[in-house]
Each structure stands twice: as C-alpha cells, then as structure tokens.
Amino acid sequence: MTRATPRSVLVTGGNRGIGLAVARRFAAAGDLVTVTYRGEKPPGDEKFLSVQCDVTDSQQVDQAFKEAESAHGPVTVLVANAGATQDRLLVRMSEADFTSVIDTNLTGAFRVAQRAVRGMIRERHGRIVLISSTTALHGAPGQTNYAAAKAGLVGFARSLTQELGPRDITCNVVAPGLTETDMTRALTEEQRQELLRQTPAGRPGHPDEVADAVAFLAGAGYVRGAVIPVDGGAGLGH
C-alpha cells in the first residue's frame, strides 16, 4: 500500500541484510528513504538515497542527516540498524574488540538518535526503531561485547521514551533472532543447527519478516519503550 503523505526515513546500515529489507519496505510504501552505508554501497537500482556514513563518527552522522534533510525534508522515521561484531571468548577478547563493538552498536545508535530527535522535537512527531538482537535477552558465548551493546539499546529506548513524554515521538526496539543475513551465514553448521534446535519455527527468519515489525512500529503511536522479538519463538516472547 502506497502512503498518501511520504515520510522522510533514514536507515543506518541499509546496504544489505535487515537494513536493506527495511529500506525497501519503506520505499515500496511510498516513503522517501535515505540509507547509510560504511563500505559496500547498496544495489544501484534501489529507489532511495545512499549516503556513506560511519556511525562511530559524529561529523559523518550529521552530514548524513543534512543530505537526507536536503533531499527529503526533516527525518521523522529513524531505524538504527548499523552494527558490527568481534566475536571472541572473554579471556581472549581485547579491550579494542569490546569497545569497537560498543561504539558501533550502542554509541552509534546514540549518535543517530540524538541527531534525529532534534528535528523530531521541532516537528512534534517522530518514530525511532532500534535494531537489537535476541542475544541481548539470553546471551551467547563469545559475544559478551555484542550482547552488552544490544542489551544497552533496550535501556536506551526505555529511558528515551520517558524523556520524550507526551510528545508524539516514540522509541522502540526490534530484537531479531536467527535471520538469513551475511552475519549468520558466517556461522558454523554446528552453531546453526544448535540455534535452529532452539527455534520452535524450525527455520531462520527472513529479513523481510524483521521489516514487518519495523514497519509496524514506524506507524504505531501508542507503542513506546517496547521490545519486539522476531525470533521464531526462540525466546518465547522474551
């Protein structure tokens, strides 16, 4: 269904996987979409604006918003999806392994949300969706850094929800489980089978199924500070 009044949407890490599926969903609905990417550009035939941006750099974040605002108007929907992993057991994890993952996944979300909220307050309207992970809810060996960063997004969203109060600005979290992306394709077959064993659906999710939840939250005005798992039942709602 095409939207009568297009919104200005910005998706970080929108060049592949979940981010690309989310961007396509909004574009198909008639929204004006900007995606950021750090390395590989999105496919050239996509119907959205692509801006190179590393979310660990505040100046690049500000420039990405300026380009989105210039092309599409004030950003009223933000999807903070950009992420990174450096998986290692804690005893072998360097401080750089830990802090780099926190900087991209958690502090990166802070940077883009802070920049977005300024304009949303002026517009008196906004929707922020943070892409977390079910790893944040039940943990995973070798991912103390990633789980900590993704869990931090939950507290961030709920605190921001209270700060925004009666304004028509929402902040929610989507927590995907095992999903067919480049990140999960890097798993060993043993790891993959163990995750599938824990998933009542008996299969991995598709990025489009995560996009379903994001699209819902981008239109839901009375859902605030929520965490929606999209994990085939692996967490049984948690």
Rank of each mutant, 00 (worst) to 15 (best):
S70C: 03
S70D: 14
A71Q: 12
H72R: 03
H72M: 01
G73V: 06
G73P: 08
P74S: 12
T76C: 08
T76I: 06
T76D: 14
T76G: 09
V77K: 01
V77F: 03
L78I: 04
L78S: 09
L78K: 04
L78H: 09
L78Y: 09
V79S: 06
V79R: 05
N81V: 01
N81C: 13
N81Q: 03
A82N: 08
A82T: 06
A82P: 06
G83K: 06
G83P: 05
G83M: 01
G83Q: 07
G83F: 09
A84K: 13
T85M: 10
Q86M: 13
D87F: 04
D87T: 10
R88I: 00
R88W: 03
L89P: 08
L89D: 10
L89A: 12
L89F: 10
L89Y: 03
L90C: 11
L90K: 00
L90A: 15
L90V: 12
V91H: 11
V91W: 14
V91M: 14
R92N: 15
M93D: 00
S94Y: 06
S94D: 11
E95F: 09
A96Q: 13
A96P: 00
A96H: 09
D97R: 03
D97P: 02
F98V: 07
F98C: 10
F98Q: 04
F98P: 02
S100E: 13
S100Q: 14
V101T: 15
V101W: 08
V101D: 11
I102C: 09
I102F: 05
I102S: 11
D103Q: 13
D103C: 03
T104D: 12
T104A: 03
T104V: 14
N105Q: 11
N105K: 04
N105L: 07
L106D: 12
L106P: 06
T107Y: 13
T107H: 09
T107W: 07
T107I: 15
T107P: 01
G108L: 02
G108M: 03
F110T: 08
F110N: 08
R111G: 04
R111M: 02
R111Q: 04
V112F: 05
V112T: 15
A113S: 15
A113Y: 02
A113R: 01
R115K: 10
A116C: 14
V117K: 01
R118I: 02
G119V: 01
G119P: 00
